[in-house]
Design a protein around this nucleic acid. Structure first.
Lengths: 218, 218
DNA sequence: GTCTATACTTGGATAGAC
DNA sequence: GTCTATCCAAGTATAGAC
């Protein structure tokens, strides 16, 4: 009898059943992500998150200890989702134009889905709340590694390979991605970043050319 | 007699004389910049600024109306200083390796002088306080234009010129600079960005090569 | 585990003396 | 123009009922 109490309250109410299945922690994390997307980092207080998710403010502290810890958990959550998406899209690509094409596609999805906004807001927030800095820096590392893998694959056999340290290049790409996202985010105008992808698509065959011809075998 | 009252309190006290000469507004702006550098955006409250500058908190509101308006003024101030520096360093450069060399030098100065920190904190803050967004976006524009000028000059006569829209390239460079600054700032580790400049210096002759040989006259 | 109520803190902003 | 004193709003966090 006692074992049944956990399910006693579910019944026909979909929302309640869902909250029991997913667990409250997960519900809180999702409310945090949504609040950042909709209202920005500064407005993402425990009260605002609770209002978004329809639960009590005190639950944030009961389950996560502090708002900061919840925000880190929220970043982990979106990062995992996005990483899975990027791995699926980019994991098997071996040429630069192809890479740019799928990267551009994934970027559009990120933009539409609000993932970029979450990332930008968190980076910005990390700058504002120093305690978050190290946690967020650590969560950027996998992205640099992932980018480096893709870069190494695309440059394999290229004569540029030995000349450009792949880690530097990966860092540069992530920086560019991040900087463009923040600038676009700032002016609420995504056009410049999109223009950049189009230009990249136009220019990338040029690098292929250089690679194939082996012009720069120094 | 009345005309003399303004100077009546100066005398041997250097600090007071200085404040009268520069005006209190300027003193407040400098205190704001210093507070951002030392304590970060989030900690830069009217009270903190007043403590840094050794004046009363209420003066912020008397002279600037709000903390936000003061912060924008502070960004204007550092931007003007940095722009002058960059113009002097880059204004006459015409080759890519040379450009990268002086840009790297100026970047080191920016880093040491805390200018990069102010910029990064303000961009981050703009994300946190939406009202600041448009003001800061407007203040990034001159940097993109300036970069575009330099890019156009360096690419003049290059066969890459017609292929790469200079505005896109300028946007990309500013994004890269900004993104690298924010990532470095995050992990309190400037090494990655410096490594990037070194790599740039190594690779840039390659572009010169492409340009000179005219390999890609499509 | 979840709620209500509330203590405590910080910071923006203003009134009014000087 | 500059100061003291204060109001007010928003947010973190906790105590304790349920």
């Amino acid at each position: 009898m006692i074992g049944a109490t956990a399910l006693a309250k579910s019944g026909p109410n979909g929302a309640v059943a869902r909250s029991i299945r997913e667990g409250t922690r997960q519900r809180i994390v999702e409310a945090a992500v949504q609040t950042i997307k909709e209202r920005g980092f500064a407005a993402t207080s425990a009260r605002a998150i609770a209002a978004t998710g329809g639960f009590n403010q005190a639950l944030v502290f009961y389950h996560f200890g502090s708002v900061n810890d919840l925000l880190v958990a929220a970043l982990d959550h979106t990062s995992a989702v996005r990483m899975a998406r990027y791995r699926a899209a980019i994991g098997s690509v071996t040429t630069l134009p192809e890479l740019l094409s799928v990267a551009s596609e994934a970027y559009q999805e990120d933009l539409a889905g609000g993932h970029i906004k979450v990332l930008a807001e968190m980076i910005a927030g990390a700058s504002a709340i120093p305690e978050l800095g190290p946690a967020i820096a650590a969560r950027m590392e996998p992205w640099i590694s992932f980018t480096e893998e893709a870069v190494v694959r695309v440059m394999a056999g290229s004569s540029l390979g030995p000349l450009v340290p792949s880690h530097d290049l990966a860092f540069a790409i992530v920086s560019l991605y991040l900087g463009a996202a923040m600038l676009s985010h700032l002016s609420a105008d995504a056009a410049p970043a999109e223009s950049l992808f189009r230009t990249g698509a136009k220019v990338s065959p040029l690098f292929e050319l250089v690679t194939l011809r082996g012009v720069v075998d120094i």
